[in-house]
Amino acid sequence: MDKHRIYTTSVASVYPHYVTKAEKKGRTKKEVDTIICWLTGYSQEELNTHLEKKTDFETFFTEAPHLNPSRTLIKGVVCGVRVENIEEPIMREIRYLDKLIDELARGKAMEKILRKS
């Protein structure tokens, strides 16, 4: 089976859409960055480097320093598919990120988005 085209899409090309989606709902770029860093373990500097290098999604998640173990608590539907049921690991990570950005745009508190008790 061929890989989905999102794997070869650069994170930098989608990132502005994440920020725009958040800002339209009164949230900030800093909150988007916080979510991405929480999910992947990248520092802000490392995230900025990947955006500058136009790293593709597959590489971005494959090379992530520390995928947050609490990400498995992310549940729900993105693009008509339950994220917890996605079997392909990289696609599941991409959809986790989509789901977190959706939660941010819907006004959910950061503590809940970042799955803090």
Rank of each mutant, 00 (worst) to 15 (best):
K29S: 02
E103K: 08
S13N: 09
G107C: 14
D102V: 08
R27T: 09
V77E: 15
H17A: 13
V81W: 02
Y42Q: 07
V14R: 09
C79Q: 00
R5H: 11
M110A: 06
F57V: 02
T34P: 05
S43D: 12
K53P: 04
D56C: 14
S10F: 08
I113Y: 12
P65W: 03
A12M: 11
K112L: 12
L39E: 03
L67T: 13
M1E: 10
D56H: 03
R5G: 13
I113S: 11
E23P: 09
I35N: 03
A64T: 07
A64D: 08
E23Y: 12
L114H: 10
V32D: 05
P69H: 04
E93G: 01
G26I: 13
I113E: 15
G41S: 00
T49R: 10
R106M: 09
N68K: 13
S70T: 14
Y42R: 05
E93A: 07
P65Y: 02
E52T: 10
K30L: 00
T9G: 13
V81R: 03
T34E: 13
S117F: 03
G107P: 15
K25R: 14
T49L: 10
T72K: 12
D33L: 00
S13K: 04
A22P: 15
H50W: 00
F57Y: 07
I94P: 09
R92K: 14
F60W: 01
Y7E: 12
N85L: 08
T55A: 05
T8W: 05
M1I: 15
I6Q: 02
K54T: 10
G41H: 01
V78A: 07
R82Q: 13
E103A: 00
L100N: 05
S43W: 11
E58S: 03
E111P: 01
M91L: 08
I94N: 00
R115C: 04
D2F: 08
L39A: 05
A12T: 07
E93N: 09
G76T: 01
L97Q: 02
S70N: 15
K3Y: 02
E31D: 11
H66E: 10
V14K: 06
T28E: 14
P89E: 04
K29R: 01
E88D: 08
L51S: 00
T8H: 04
I36E: 00
V11L: 00
E111W: 09
I36M: 09
L39S: 06
K54D: 11
E103P: 05
E103C: 02
E63A: 03
K75W: 09
K99A: 02
E84D: 14
L73Y: 12
T59F: 01
K112T: 08
E93K: 14
R95V: 11
H50G: 01
I36Q: 08
I35M: 03
R71C: 06
P65D: 01
E58R: 03
C79P: 05
L97C: 04
K75P: 07
H17Y: 14
G80A: 06
L67S: 08
E88H: 13
Y96E: 03
G80R: 01
E111S: 06
Y7Q: 13
K54R: 06
F60H: 08
T34S: 12
K53C: 04
N68A: 01
W38N: 02
K54H: 10
G107V: 14
C37N: 08
D56V: 11
E46R: 00
K112W: 11
R82G: 05
E23G: 10
K24P: 14
T8A: 04
L97I: 03
D2T: 11
V19I: 12
L114R: 14
E93R: 12
T28H: 14
V77M: 11
N85A: 06
